[in-house]
């Protein structure tokens, strides 16, 4: 993890990154079962790499596969909450 990411986040360095301890992390890595979570604010730690998540976006759970490059970012960054507007001629379709 880049130390600068913590420093730039505005959070006190002594607290370390905010994260949620997933109890089923080890098992998920072995069985390749996605972890269903609402913790969008959870920082992606180095030991999350390779785990699949289902992150809540306010409506449903979006699959997120964690890679090496995502370390230091939050889970919520990869589950988009906004849908792009598309015009439909009639509402009842």
């Amino acid at each position: 993890m880049q130390p600068s990411l913590i420093l730039r986040s505005g959070r006190s360095a002594w607290k370390g990154p905010y994260f949620v301890a997933f109890s089923n992390l080890k098992q998920a890595l072995e069985d390749n079962v996605p972890i269903r979570t609402n913790a969008r604010a959870c920082t992606i730690l180095p030991n999350f790499v390779g785990v699949r998540f289902l992150v809540h976006n306010g409506k449903d759970y979006v699959p997120v596969a964690v890679t090496q490059d995502m370390i230091g970012h939050k889970l919520g960054e990869f589950a988009h909450t906004k849908k792009r507007f598309t015009y439909r001629a009639t509402k009842n379709r």
Binding site: T67, D69, M70, H73, G76, E77, F78, H80
Partner: peptide
């Protein structure tokens, strides 16, 4: 480019 590559909201 890195943010875009990992598919984060900021990159999008």
């Amino acid at each position: 480019a890195h943010l875009r590559m990992i598919g984060s909201y900021v990159g999008k």
